[in-house]
Design a protein around this nucleic acid. Structure first.
Length: 298
RNA sequence: GGCGGGUUGGCGGAGAGGUUACGCACCGGAUUGCAAAUCCGUGUAGACCGGUUCGAUUCCGGUACCCGCCU
């Protein structure tokens, strides 16, 4: 099964980028590496946290050894205190797409793949000032306050109970004077149409995946996750995107003496499992046309 | 052996004679720019047996188990 799939990919039209999506701990990076080493191409990261330079172990980024075997892109290229988002990722990928190498895009961030193959509204990035104002307004006056500033159409279109969604709508309107739904209505064509790519979705039985997740965090600890987190201890800022890496807040809490290592591991494992569930939900609902790949099936 | 307290959904943990406590986990879902984020939804649980009552998880009695104190 596995070999058939790989052979098919190796024999496929080399102008088509290979897309590999899948939940954490599914082994998708291994597949990407195998394809890259056997047929060439550059492996491109499609994971929101593997872009961070400071979390090689925690974000399960390819090892230096792996990186020597094939060219890798968009891994660890963002520093710990920088913002990053789908928009920037898309800009990064567009540049690579225009290059000569075949792209093997791998990752677990469903939003990235959806934006890549279905398009993303061309909204200018939110300025730092507006972001901070929004944060402040939300914290001080609550979600309703931001909601009141929106137009009816937007209010009807977004999840008004979700502060993130409401804040985003508010930020877009405030910054561009145009509602987010209006922007979305004029979403440009995707950078890469699905039929111009080879989209593969790792489809792993829940119990099997949970079994792998169960041992995953312990392995990270053995690889030195604790040291990695310790290096970030003094500059720790929980509001940064990079601080959202699963395991980071948990291990920071342990280093701060707020909990035991055992408890930190348990909570990180739970968070990983929950994350995988959300990924599955995304894949199920938005990636129906992707070719399923079940390497662990018996 | 005696006296007292306790026994609530997977776990933690409340109140009330007749509405869903709640939190966590689990499961399902949403999600076009912080997405490893954020949010939404789902639980006939009340140790067991009997009684009182129109109605008991809530009152009464007994049984079992647990925890104290006493002999």
């Amino acid at each position: 099964m596995q070999d058939i799939m790989i052979n098919e990919i190796l024999a496929s039209d080399p102008t088509k980028p290979v897309l590999i999506a899948g939940p954490t701990a599914s082994g998708k990076s291994d597949l990407a590496l195998e394809i890259a080493t056997r047929s060439g191409g550059v492996i491109v990261n499609a994971d929101a946290l593997q872009v961070y330079e400071n979390w090689r172990i925690l974000s399960a980024r390819p090892s230096k050894n792996d990186e020597d075997k094939a060219p890798h892109s968009l891994y660890g290229h963002i520093s710990w205190d920088q913002d990053y988002s789908v928009g920037e990722w898309l800009r990064d990928v567009r540049i690579l797409l225009n290059g000569d190498n075949r792209l093997i895009i791998v990752g677990g961030t469903g939003l990235y793949f959806t934006a890549l193959t279905q398009g993303l509204a061309d909204i200018p990035p939110t300025s730092q000032e507006i972001r901070e104002t929004a944060n402040k307004l939300l914290a001080q006056h609550g979600i309703q306050h931001l909601l009141n500033a929106l137009d009816d159409e937007t209010r009807a279109a977004i999840d008004v109970q979700n502060p993130m969604r409401v804040q985003r709508a508010w930020e877009v309107l405030t910054q561009t004077n145009r509602s987010i739904v209006d922007w979305q209505r004029t979403t440009p064509a995707p950078i890469l149409r699905l039929d111009r790519a080879l989209p593969i979705l790792f489809d792993i039985e829940k119990d099997i995946l949970n079994g792998r997740i169960e041992t995953r965090f312990q392995k990270m600890i053995e690889l030195g996750a604790l040291e990695e987190v310790r290096e970030n201890y003094d500059r720790w800022d929980p509001t940064l995107l990079s601080s959202k890496a699963i395991g980071a807040p948990e291990l920071i809490a342990y280093l701060a003496g707020e909990t035991t290592l055992d408890d930190a591991c348990t909570r990180a494992t739970i968070a990983t499992r929950q994350f995988a569930k959300r990924q599955r939900t995304w894949f199920r609902s938005k990636m129906g046309l992707w070719r399923r790949y079940s390497p662990h099936a018996k």
